[in-house]
């Protein structure tokens, strides 16, 4: 019981420090201390999330020891690699690193959803629906961000466009959304599992298809949009896990990221739909 209270309070502390840190980051004078404040919140929340072990020891989970070891290894591998990579990458290559890390966050949100949907514990349709929507947004953010990273890093040099691309993308999205509805309806039924696999596949493909036609010059705006997407996905998975810290942090990033995206598009004298649906290269080629 105490464990749950401690974890809840650490989440509250983290959410408060995130908002305070973001506020400090929004002024040039205090910006550098803002990230440190937010970092303290992150460390506290991650450390406290191991407290669930004490609850599980009483419940008796025979995989607990392995799970803790796996968690420590995963933390060390993920954080170690990112810390090393982020420290040595050239200053000019920063935007694509933000894209890559952002995509990984989207992937993490999608993994949470995958674990939740694979369980046969019957959740309410509301929770399942929110989990599926979060999975869709997180998966799109994952593959979309990876394409954005590849474009900025010079691994994909030309936008890939073909006639009727918007219709094809619309069909992929509609099919994925239908599969998502199917996942909610057939949850717990064995055939529902293959639906879930197809759903995740469709969402990942849609992220690729949505980003490929957009030109490299527009990538900062697109990365900012996917940043907001990941925030939204994290917030929705936070609801599925009944974790208010994830809900608050995710939704704050979701709305702040959406506003930032609009501001960045405005700074380029473009509207967001102009960036996403009409291709910059085509416009400059025509005019």
């Amino acid at each position: 019981m105490y464990v749950q209270h401690l974890m809840g309070l650490s989440g509250l502390l983290a959410a408060g420090l995130f908002i305070f840190g973001l506020k400090r980051m929004s002024s040039p004078v205090t910006a550098l201390s803002g990230i440190v404040v937010a970092g303290v919140g992150m460390v506290a929340a991650v450390a406290a999330s191991f407290l669930v072990v004490f609850d599980l020891m009483h419940a008796g989970n025979d995989r607990l020891g392995v799970n803790v070891a796996l968690a420590l290894v995963a933390l060390a591998v993920g954080a170690g690699w990112a810390w090393w990579k982020g420290g040595k990458v050239a200053m000019t290559a920063m935007p694509q690193m933000v894209a890559l890390y952002n995509g990984m966050g989207g992937g993490a949100a999608a993994s949470i959803a995958a674990v939740a949907l694979s369980g046969d514990a019957g959740g309410s349709p509301l929770i399942l629906g929110v989990t599926v929507i979060g999975a869709l947004i997180g998966s799109v953010s994952l593959t979309g961000s990876v394409i954005a990273w590849a474009k900025l890093d010079g691994k994909i040099n030309h936008p890939w466009r073909f006639g009727g691309q918007r219709i094809v993308n619309g069909v992929i999205f509609a099919a994925t959304a239908l599969l998502g509805v199917g996942v909610v309806i057939f949850h717990g039924v064995p055939s529902g599992l293959s639906l879930a696999i197809l759903f995740f596949f469709g969402a990942l493909v849609f992220g690729v298809m949505m980003t490929l036609p957009i030109g490299g010059a527009d990538m900062p705006v697109v990365i900012s949009l996917y940043n907001a997407f990941t925030g939204l996905a994290v917030g929705l998975e936070g609801f599925a896990l009944q974790n208010p810290a994830l809900m608050i942090a995710g939704m704050v990033v979701g709305s702040a990221g959406t506003l930032l995206t609009a501001l960045m598009a405005k700074a380029m004298n473009r509207s967001l739909s102009n960036v996403l649906f009409s291709n910059f290269g085509d416009l400059s080629g025509a005019g």
Binding site: G21, S26, G39, F50, L56, N61, A71, A108, S111, V115
Partner: peptide, 28 residues
């Protein structure tokens, strides 16, 4: 400050690791 803020908010949704830790630690 747009780009640093985008990066800063990118860090903040890294809190997703807490949800992933919960999923892993309670995995059966």
């Amino acid at each position: 400050l747009h780009t640093p803020l985008m990066s800063g908010s990118n860090f903040i949704h890294g809190i997703v690791v807490v949800g992933a830790l919960h999923a892993l630690l309670t995995a059966t």
